[in-house]
């Protein structure tokens, strides 16, 4: 864990604390095409998130924890990365977490897993 306690999170995000979409802690983020040149132009925190996301679809919480970037800052930086087409924020396949098609898939998957 490499959180940087010396820099106020506010500074890392250029003063922004809000994101346009709501990124849940379990929202998946992935990288379709990793661009090392683009990575060099990013802030260290954004670069860590971008690199880590290129390993495979991961949740916002995993990216935050593995990169040592707070959840709030992670959300803002991921939104910037998405706006620049560096990362893909998974659209929710189902409109609601209570959608019975989703619940049935999870229930069936867990039964098999048990």
């Amino acid at each position: 864990m490499t959180a940087n306690p010396w820099v106020r999170p506010y500074v890392l995000t250029g003063g922004r604390t809000r994101t346009r979409h709501h990124l849940y802690v379990h929202t998946l983020v992935s990288v379709d095409h990793y661009d090392p040149t683009a990575a060099l132009r990013l802030s260290p925190e954004a670069r860590r998130l971008y690199e880590r996301a290129s390993f495979g679809a991961q949740s916002v919480a995993e990216l935050s924890a593995h990169c040592g970037v707070s959840l709030g800052v992670t959300r803002v930086l991921l939104e910037d990365l998405a706006a620049a087409d560096h990362v893909l924020i998974n659209e929710d396949t189902y409109a609601s977490p209570y959608d019975h098609r989703l619940l049935k898939r999870v229930i069936d998957g867990l039964r098999e897993f048990a």
Binding site: Y24, H26, L28, S30, H33, A57, N90, D92, T93
Partner: peptide, 11 residues
């Protein structure tokens, strides 16, 4: 060739 599968997450 690197199509991202449409993965769904639940919590």
């Amino acid at each position: 060739d690197r199509a991202v599968p449409n993965v769904t997450s639940a919590k």
